[in-house]
Design a protein around this nucleic acid. Sequence first.
DNA 1: GCGTTTACTTACTTATAAGTAAGTCAACAT
DNA 2: ATGTTGACTTACTTATAAGTAAGTAAACGC
Lengths: 196, 196
Amino acid sequence: MTRTDTRERILDEAEQLMGARGYSGFSYQDIARPLGIRNAAIHYHFPTKADLGVAVIQRYRDMLAAAWKDFRAGRTSPRQQFDGYLHIFTHEAVRNQTLCPMGVLTADYFNLPDSMLEAGTTLKREVLEWLAEILASGRDSGDFRFEGNPEDEALMVMATLQGARQMARMIGTDAMMAIVTRLRSDLVADAGDRAA
Amino acid sequence: MTRTDTRERILDEAEQLMGARGYSGFSYQDIARPLGIRNAAIHYHFPTKADLGVAVIQRYRDMLAAAWKDFRAGRTSPRQQFDGYLHIFTHEAVRNQTLCPMGVLTADYFNLPDSMLEAGTTLKREVLEWLAEILASGRDSGDFRFEGNPEDEALMVMATLQGARQMARMIGTDAMMAIVTRLRSDLVADAGDRAA
DNA sequence: GCGTTTACTTACTTATAAGTAAGTCAACAT
DNA sequence: ATGTTGACTTACTTATAAGTAAGTAAACGC
């Protein structure tokens, strides 16, 4: 009940709802009711639904940027950083089978207002750049093993993660985790079993 | 203008629209207008939207079943069959950046009526069973190389394909094709470059 | 030729969506 | 104490959604 954590709680609900039902799959009602506020209260903080959608993406970008900063501050290895990202990525998925904002972006693409597409393009770029960077330095350090350039590998990793998270709805979260674990072990050099 | 190809044209539009905007992202209007018919004409063929959604899935299942039958009739190798599936899968994606009905199912999962979830579960099972089968026989014949059981590999392949197709909206279809090509070459034994 | 069925149309209902305008009321600044 | 601002609420508008009921006209069975 302090000052405006209302805004933050609106964003919490919106992120959950967007992750579960997509951008056009939730209404202001869906947010207002559980929070015990009125529709217009949301319009006060976010005049249009597009503003709300952009804010969700923005906050998610900030969260990731903070996590990446922590990773770097902790002088963690590329592999540990990658595992940290996997944890962030899979944790919510296991809890409630939602998509991350980036998954929503690609899934709901043709329903999104321009402002969200712009914010989403930035998010996509940041994620792929970070991933490519961690993959590149990880290959140099011997943490990772893969062929081709790190940018392509980053795309491959993202596609598999997003696909797995989405498929979790139909195959269950255990099967999703199996895919993620397999992806990781294909990438990690000392996986043990080795190849061909 | 023959007798009821109207029904089929409704399904064509619905499949396109669902693939582009999801199940709850299109309306009867969106279908009726381009076909030059009225909303109620769609209700005549498909009383509820759920019926329409189920019919789209059903028709897609039939299409795949026919393709698989052709593959088998042609005595094509596991690799050729896999390539055939990749072609079906990627062709529409490149043309219009839609998702396949199975992608829609996972993306829009929590918006779907029960009848669609049931039809979707069957579709998912069929696709994964076919894939696992082709992967298994392909490994036996030397067409494919992978570790672990074929069922897990099938999940891995599906996740990557679905993720890539969805990401095509943001990264472009060329990048999507690069992912698919890479997935294929990781799977095909004589890929040349080899591993480890 | 005539009744029934098929494939629609027109005209409607009901629900829910986003968004707006005007009002309220507590806290704070002066 | 008083005016202003922040954080809402009540009450509304407009648009669009799915779905229904009743009518129509062509083709088909007989």
